[in-house]
Amino acid sequence: MQLKKTIIGFTTLATAASVVLASPLMKRDEFCGQWDTEESGNFKIWNNLWGQDSGSGSQCTEVLKVEDNTISWKTSWSWSGGQYSVKSYANAEYLFDPVQLSGLSSIPFTWNWKYTGGGDPFVCNVSFDIWTASSESGDYEYEIMIWLAAIGGAGPLGDEVGKFSYGGIEWSLHEGSNGVQPVYSFIAGSKVENMDSDAFPFLSHLVEKGYLSNDQYLRSVQAGTEPFEGTDAVLETSTYKVQIK
């Protein structure tokens, strides 16, 4: 059974350039509050329990290591109830100045991750969440997701509108709405735990198909997980790095 995530809205997240640190930052204490964050190097790590009221449970996130433009981090969670609703989106947001899609050439990234635990049922995704707008400030206008894994029957918003083959993987493209912005979700045909690739061709595909304007500004690039249900689940990212070129 495919599950549909429901989103009430999303608070605009301001981004800013950050100085790359020359020496590594090692493991910090975990943080568990609804909107707790930690900035390290070029990243802002979010616990982000935005949908916690749709069920019950808890989640904590911690930064394990940051060195130059590479981060390792993990989040641990248990959620029950509201089986069709996303409870949170723990993620690593890359900090950069907004840039128009027409001025981009690539968004190279490496993401190595692994899930343990989860129990039964265990329903979640592992995904990029990318936001664009027609200006450098103000509200986001489009949400673009790239799902590296749909676990336990988790499904995206909307209906399938096409296929996209890239990086040796066939992705299904879904079009929907979170109630505020149009949402375009690319879903990998099978779980991808280690990926060294480029996110820009996904945006280019949307432009080519007329779903997205080349005049849009890239405003936020986040990488994390959306839990629906599970017990003692742990997502650990051993390596994550991304650039905006």
Rank of each mutant, 00 (worst) to 15 (best):
S76K: 15
S76G: 06
S76M: 15
W77Q: 06
S78H: 05
W79F: 01
W79T: 01
W79C: 00
S80M: 11
S80A: 12
S80T: 15
S80R: 11
G81P: 04
G82E: 02
Q83K: 14
Q83H: 13
Y84T: 12
Y84P: 01
S85M: 08
S85G: 10
S85C: 13
K87R: 06
S88K: 05
S88R: 00
S88L: 01
Y89G: 00
Y89S: 07
A90C: 07
A90W: 03
N91P: 05
A92Y: 09
A92M: 03
E93V: 09
Y94M: 08
Y94A: 05
L95M: 13
L95I: 05
F96L: 03
F96W: 11
D97A: 15
D97Q: 15
D97W: 08
D97I: 11
P98Q: 11
Q100K: 14
Q100V: 06
Q100M: 07
Q100R: 14
L101M: 11
L101T: 08
S102M: 10
S102H: 04
S102K: 11
G103W: 00
G103Y: 10
G103P: 02
L104N: 07
S105T: 13
S105R: 14
S106Y: 03
I107N: 09
P108F: 04
P108E: 02
F109E: 02
T110P: 00
W111S: 01
N112Y: 12
N112M: 00
K114V: 03
K114P: 00
K114W: 02
Y115N: 14
Y115P: 03
Y115G: 04
Y115W: 15
Y115F: 14
G117T: 07
G117R: 08
G117S: 02
G118N: 05
G118D: 02
G118E: 01
G118S: 04
G118F: 08
G119T: 12
G119Y: 09
G119S: 12
D120H: 14
P121S: 11
P121F: 10
F122S: 15
F122I: 02
F122Y: 14
V123P: 00
C124I: 12
C124V: 14
